[in-house]
């Protein structure tokens, strides 16, 4: 069953087409990754699903019902975790969650139970009476999630929920997303961290210039990329090399360096390994290890859009 169905969705701001005739389905029980660079139309699409923006054309159906004609039904079944924190600093964690849950019709004992449950779920049960101004960035992000789940929505949209937080909080949030999904909640997840998407999402759509340019499971997307190989070269500490020189070698599409490890995307059809190694050794670098890796989502994104997601 499709929790979300989008048909011919279009949004124009004057002459600018932010979302262009988009069609997409999200199935019940999925964690659906929504990838796109800044300005690709990802946030505009999410805002239309969340009723924050009205579509210029097209249709959004949530649990089989048109979201405009059955706005209350759509909104009741939706939980949103906006990228920017959406909490009141002068209200306690409990008051924040209870206020938003109350807007979904929860009252009395049920409201209290669900509020406490949501706070426990994100690990803030013992800080229910504290105000967010006393929280760390990660705790605020977790409260932001709690405010979206207390009413037990069928579909949760999480827009960059891990931006700017420490690894421990990030792991906590990723585990929470998995647990939510296991409890039967469908999740739409956007992130600039490709490894997060790779870790938790069961299906991914890549958006570019307002259109979905690829949609499928991680394996299906990676299978698209048959003409690219990923090389990972570990260098001895202190090795000198020129990324520019490597980038000029025929067949090399992109070169990145992180913590003494070079990541090189190259045309699979071009046999350029010897030239790459020669370029490194000519510069005085010493290679410690070399490995040809399976293409990952980063490679897929780079190949399809021509840009790295993280660099946006």
């Amino acid at each position: 069953m499709n929790v979300l169905e989008i048909q011919g969705l279009t949004k124009k701001f004057g002459n600018f087409v932010a979302v262009d005739n988009m069609t997409l389905n999200v199935k019940e029980g999925e964690i659906f990754g929504f990838l796109g660079s800044n300005g690709a139309g990802k946030s505009t699409t999410i805002n239309m699903i969340s009723s924050l923006l009205q579509p210029s054309a097209g249709e959004i159906r949530i649990l089989g019902k048109d979201s405009r004609k059955h706005s209350r039904h759509a909104k009741t079944n939706l939980g949103i975790v906006p990228q920017d924190l959406a909490i009141y600093d002068d209200m306690t964690a409990y008051e924040n969650v209870a206020f938003f849950a109350g807007l979904y019709g929860l009252r009395g004992k049920l409201l209290k139970e669900r509020t406490e449950e949501a706070l426990e779920f994100v690990g803030l049960g013992d800080r229910a009476k504290s105000r967010p101004s006393t929280f760390s960035g990660g705790m605020k992000r977790r409260l932001n999630i709690a405010c979206a789940i207390a009413h037990k929505p069928s579909l949760i949209i999480m827009d960059e929920p891990t931006v700017g937080i420490d690894p421990q909080s990030r792991n906590y949030i990723l585990e929470s997303v998995k647990k939510l999904n296991e409890s039967g909640c469908t999740v739409i997840y956007t992130s600039h961290y490709m490894e997060e998407v790779e870790e938790i999402c069961s299906r991914v759509a890549i958006v570019d210039h307002g259109k979905i340019i690829a949609d499928g499971t991680k394996e299906q997307l990676k299978a698209i990329i048959t003409d690219v190989k990923d090389l990972s070269i570990e260098l001895k500490p202190g090795s000198a090399y020129s990324l520019q020189s490597i980038g000029k070698i025929p067949g090399v599409r992109a070169v990145n360096e992180k913590e003494g490890r070079l990541s090189i995307q190259s045309d699979a059809a071009v046999d350029n390994l010897n030239r790459i190694l020669k370029s490194l050794m000519d510069g005085g670098a010493e290679v410690k290890a070399l490995q040809e890796e399976e293409p990952n989502l980063e490679t897929v994104f780079l190949t399809l859009t021509g840009r790295s997601l993280r660099d946006q």
Partner: peptide, 11 residues
């Protein structure tokens, strides 16, 4: 505060 989005998204 960003809460406008949450208010509008609520029923």
């Amino acid at each position: 505060q960003g809460t406008a989005a949450r208010l509008v998204a609520a029923p």
